[in-house]
């Protein structure tokens, strides 16, 4: 039998890999993908807790997180497209329009 802790440790590892990606990558698209990976690791944690507590409310939460992730991806990619149209780059180091 797989223990709950195995799932939680896997979720933590995936979340940390996503966090490392957000810090090290400079491409806005890859940073967005890393954020999706972090959302996915949280989903895994919720599903694991839901199974081990024998309560299905966690599935509804994951459903809602997926909805928000889809909305976030649509709006975020639209922002990246309009940024690329104005600056012709997706490198976040070169995008400093709101810097004082």
């Amino acid at each position: 039998m797989v223990s709950l802790n195995s799932y939680l440790i896997l979720g933590a590892i995936l979340f940390s890999i996503g966090a490392i990606g957000v810090f090290t990558q400079r491409n806005a698209l890859i940073i967005y993908m890393c954020i999706e990976l972090m959302l996915n690791s949280v989903n895994l944690t919720i599903i694991a807790f839901s199974r081990f507590l024998n309560n299905m409310d966690g599935h509804v939460f994951v459903f809602m997180i997926m909805t928000v992730a889809a909305a976030e991806a649509a709006v975020g990619l639209a922002i990246i497209i309009s940024l690329f149209r104005n600056k012709a780059t997706v490198n976040v180091d070169d995008i400093n329009l709101s810097k004082g």
Binding site: R26, N27, D93
Partner: peptide
Amino acid sequence: EKEGRMAG
């Protein structure tokens, strides 16, 4: 392709 470099 060179856009996807790591953090300097």
